[in-house]
């Protein structure tokens, strides 16, 4: 009966080859995948790249979560729960790891969720009471008058009502509130035809929350600047100008159905044909770790310099980035007014 083990072994080898060498449809999308990965996304992470620190790479951070899933405590893994949180916070939320991961693991999302788990979910936001409307433009705080004096731009959006964004996105990014708390507030927009957002980061927050809660408003979300820029930005911006944009978010938005064709793939200035800088150090990260966010800014501006391109004019749509970049002396920082005089 010596052929039996033979056949069995051939069969085993066949199954082995078929199942284990051809993983076409069984890619893992969890913390375990990062744990065993040679981490080809590493250079994309602005934090690990700037700090030159192997322990804060996307894989470095995901490995903490993996050990926790295997039943180890934050204390044992990192020395204390505070230390574990410190590591999870070494992340701007920029999403480049998610973008660069071939397995489409949403590392940025997993880290954000993990941060939330570490915070208390009891803090509830003060939600703005906003009536229903057919067309709303959420502008950045303090920008209402700017918008109202630009009727020509508003006409192109079907004259929406302009409302300053006071939504709880920072609290949400900091993990201080759960998405559930936002459900009824989000429902109050269900009648809107279009929700225009000035900040891509805020739009991302909104979409992500809708998706998490299974709310159908995603299709109504539109990005003002993306919409305007795609017609003319490449013609208008000269080579000495730097357009700062939430590049990373523009890479994430297509995943929830918003297309952003104008953005080029760019990391450091020399990665793209555009003079794009994207330090990633904005939003939550800037608030939680200002020194490091500044280090990111310096690094990216220096890269730009070493590439022979001085940032003479920086145009940004994000209030946070304007503040952040204005501290650098090398160029003037504009908040889009430069492009759209009233």
């Amino acid at each position: 009966m010596s052929w039996i083990p033979d056949v069995f072994s051939t069969l085993k080898t066949w199954v082995f080859k078929k199942k284990l060498l051809k993983f076409s449809s069984r890619f893992r999308r969890d913390t375990q995948a990062c744990f065993y990965c040679p981490e080809m996304c590493r250079f994309a992470c602005p934090v690990s790249e700037t700090l030159r620190d192997n322990s804060v790479t996307p894989r470095g951070k995901m490995s903490i979560l993996h050990w926790m899933e295997r039943g180890e405590t934050p204390d044992k893994i990192t020395g204390s729960a505070e230390n574990a949180l410190w590591y999870l916070e070494q992340c701007t939320g920029c999403g480049r790891c998610t973008e660069y991961c071939l397995h489409e693991i949403d590392v940025a999302g997993a880290l954000r969720k993990a941060r939330k788990d570490f915070y208390s979910p009891t803090l509830l936001p003060t939600l703005p009471s906003i009536g229903r409307d057919k067309n709303i433009l959420f502008c950045e705080p303090g920008r209402q008058n700017w918008w109202r004096s630009r009727a020509n731009l508003l006409t192109r959006m079907n004259s929406p009502e302009v409302i300053e964004w006071t939504g709880p996105h920072k609290e949400w990014l900091q993990g201080k509130i759960t998405s559930q708390a936002l459900a009824s507030w989000i429902d109050s927009f269900s009648d809107a035809t279009n929700l225009w957002f000035e900040s891509a980061e805020v739009a991302w927050f909104f979409l992500e929350t809708c998706e998490e809660l299974g709310r159908p408003v995603a299709k109504k979300v539109r990005l003002v600047w993306q919409e305007f820029f795609k017609d003319w930005a490449s013609k208008e911006l000269s080579a000495t100008e730097v357009f700062h944009e939430s590049y990373h978010l523009s890479r994430l938005l297509p995943r929830v159905g918003v297309s952003v064709p104008m953005y080029e793939r760019g990391l450091l200035p020399q990665h793209s044909g555009w003079n794009v800088i994207d330090c990633g150090g904005e939003g939550f990260y800037r608030e939680a770790h200002p020194e490091k966010a500044n280090a990111l800014r310096e690094r990216f501006l220096n890269d730009l310099k070493s590439d022979g391109r001085t940032a003479t004019t920086i145009i940004s749509q994000s209030l946070c980035c304007v503040e952040h970049l204005a501290a650098d002396k090398q160029g003037s920082v504009y908040w889009l007014d430069h492009l759209f005089p009233s």
């Binding site: 890619f27 893992r28 375990q32 995948a33 744990f35 065993y36 990965c37 040679p38 397995h103």
Partner: peptide, 8 residues
């Protein structure tokens, strides 16, 4: 990238 599939 195949590494992680197998080693896990």
């Amino acid at each position: 990238y195949r590494q992680q599939q197998i080693l896990s």
